[in-house]
């Protein structure tokens, strides 16, 4: 019976991965990526590798998620003011 669970779990993981890559809003992509990491941790438990599961949950979902949220926050924050601020400082002053 566990094989049904395994198939469902793998299908869910792939579905989340597809979802993450097909979002237009980066925030949704990153959130789905973090969820992906948590499902991967369940997969490691099913494959009886608790060491890998712990590392995945802490590093794969936690630290990587924080890094990505920070990165997209940076990209988004500067997105609007950039157009106005870019002219004086980024406009090839000595061209």
């Amino acid at each position: 019976m566990m094989i049904v669970f395994d198939i469902l779990l793998v299908a869910t993981i792939i579905w989340i991965a597809v979802g993450s890559l097909s979002q237009r809003q980066m925030f949704k992509s990153v959130v789905m990526f973090v969820i992906f990491g948590l499902f991967m941790a369940i997969a490691w438990i099913r494959l009886s590798s608790p060491d890998v599961a712990m590392a995945e949950a802490a590093i794969g979902a936690g630290v990587t998620g924080a890094l990505m949220l920070d990165a997209i926050g940076h990209l988004r924050r500067s997105e609007t003011p950039y157009a106005s601020a870019a002219e004086p400082e980024g406009g090839e002053p000595d061209a």
Binding site: D51, M54, A55, A58, I59, G62
Partner: peptide
């Protein structure tokens, strides 16, 4: 289960 990587990650 545990070790330097898991501890370091936490």
């Amino acid at each position: 289960p545990g070790g330097a990587f898991q501890g370091g990650a936490v």
